[in-house]
Write a protein that binds this DNA or RNA. Structure first.
Lengths: 325, 325
DNA sequence: AATATCATGTCAACGGGTTGACACACCAAA
DNA sequence: TTTGGTGTGTCAACCCGTTGACATGATATT
């Protein structure tokens, strides 16, 4: 079967301890011995068993990632950068698609702890999962408030909401409606709505918000959008809390023969590469996805190193002007 | 520190063996004892150490996924379905973004073997990595030819290429050009080009193919597309080997003021949910992403169960008629 | 009263690598 | 000659849970 350290020792004519010393570069070693051992590892196609190492070292270099779904380009891109960054630092990544479902999220949390991950990056969270608080494990959240003791990395959602709303106002919209995801997701993204509402109030307009309770269900999204158009035929500005929603709005509006941006102006949120490629004309608020990933990784590594700074990190956003406003 | 099985035993007033018996549901156990043990596990916040279990059992239930990048919606969606399916069957998934880079792919391969994965799903591969052949590990490939002994799951690329080309011909295109990814990726997707070329030849037209050597580089893609338009101002049909390329073509064509579909017809490939949301008007060949994922998972699990069937699986594709042709 | 089944305990080996303690041999510098 | 660095070996304990062997009661069945 698979060779172990003893097989290598035998084949190289040295002791198992020496092989271990070579693997970990400990103590005094002659070049000759190193070469012999490396040759033996090649000959026998040997791979050191990380399970055994991790077990002893009490460190796995394993990180859990909990996100709604890699299907969504925003998370897909975020996860790409996170994995990339961890990988370059010697960590490995266990992927969990929670689909915003409480049962899944809890099962994954359990699984990750059984597997002795060194830390977790969470970009998905349902209210009332209190596990995170009692967990003696480094955790960093992206765009979610998990508990007071867990640092959050996010972009400036309030400013993003403010800029988006103001942009529509500047473009002359009279009736602006906001569409966003499930409120029950305890996320700082709710600040986009807050900002929208406050800006509207300040301008003496009444804010109207449509909530997509199942943000991942496409047909449902369509239905709600059409409901919006039916209930507010005079809408001339829509601020969608993510680009895919904005895209759906555009496509429904086109079906109704509405002229964008003349009759209806639309601004989205996220600014992923995918959407920028497929829908380059979309005006949107771009999040610095790579920077968010980078920060999350850094914060988690800091925590794993023993530092207890619980400071949240807020990164800048940027208005990308397209042709839908 | 973290409680172990002995701590649980002590706290529950039973022997460690009994705790293990409860965990694995082995031998005779009274309900009372089970309850005591479960209570103790709750009290102490205990998670059985999977490393130790895996080490002994010689099975990790860990699967490695090697793909170019989750940033690309096609892979993002594929990976989502794969992870989902594995997760429901009790497997965990280690994510690797190889970016189509040889060095990365090899490093990941090494890492996965050190971590004792039970199997690997590969959706990325560079020519001349011969590791796969000597690997004594279940492997399944998606859309890549790794070696004769590794089963490949893919959709019907030849038929897809044929249908796409014929569709453009039927729509009256006189000069059809094909754009695809790096030829050096040893992928059955090359059959799309083959089909394109054969259909063209049969119609007595000369096939023209543009190759994007770095399929993940956006600026480069743009450059090549513009080069294409400059070199072939009379092009009136483009078959892009994936939707993102098609999207880029559309956007460059629009910049040049070309009328789609009147002057230029475009068909893409993949038909991901993301692209269908962002660019619903795109005509494309849709791959059955979920079915591909499902098949890959099944084939791998079969292999891990000891079966040695090396049959390739080809799944049906579908023409989605939009408004770009 | 004898036997079978149930319930639990003790003990040791095992999976594979790590590490500290200690011994021994060699070689070079002081 | 002594001292100290270098190079390697032996050995045992450890990480944590699993498993098989074996023993001992308790309870139920015949």
């Amino acid at each position: 079967m698979k060779p172990n350290i003893k097989d290598i020792a035998r084949h190289a004519g040295v002791s198992p301890t020496t092989v271990s010393r070579v693997l970990n570069n400990r103590g005094y070693l002659s070049q000759k011995t190193k070469d012999k051992v490396h040759q033996a590892m090649k000959d026998l196609n040997y791979f050191p068993n990380e399970l055994a190492r991790s077990l002893f070292k009490q460190k796995t270099n394993l990180i859990g990632l909990i996100f709604p779904t890699t299907s969504n380009p925003f998370f897909g891109e975020l996860i790409f950068h996170i994995e990339n960054s961890f990988s370059s630092k010697g960590y490995k990544v266990l992927l969990c698609n929670s689909l915003n479902r409480v049962d899944k999220e809890m099962a994954y949390l359990d699984m990750l702890q059984r597997n002795q991950v060194d830390g977790i990056v969470v970009g998905a969270h349902n209210r009332h999962i209190r596990q995170y608080e009692s967990m003696h494990l480094p955790v960093v959240a992206i765009d979610r408030n998990l508990s007071d003791s867990i640092p959050v990395v996010s972009s400036d959602n309030y400013l993003g909401g403010k800029i988006a709303t103001e942009h529509l106002l500047n473009k002359g919209c009279q009736k602006i409606i906001h569409i966003n995801g499930p409120h029950e997701l305890e996320t700082p993204a709710n600040k986009r709505r807050e900002a929208y509402e406050e800006v509207m109030m300040k301008e003496d307009r009444s804010p109207i918000t449509y909530e997509l309770r199942e943000s991942l269900n496409k047909n449902y999204t369509k239905t709600v959008i059409n409901q919006l158009f039916d209930e507010h035929p005079d809408v001339d500005g829509i601020f969608a809390s993510d680009d895919l929603i904005a895209a759906a709005v555009i496509s429904e509006a086109k079906k109704r023969g509405m002229n964008i941006p003349k009759e209806l102006k639309i601004i989205g949120y996220d600014g992923t590469e995918s959407v920028k490629t497929c829908l380059p004309e979309l005006t949107t608020i771009q999040q610095p996805i790579q920077a968010i990933a980078q920060s999350a990784v850094n914060v988690l590594i800091q925590q794993m190193g023993g530092e207890k700074s619980i400071e949240n990190i807020v990164l800048p956003i940027q208005l990308i002007k397209g042709f839908t406003t």
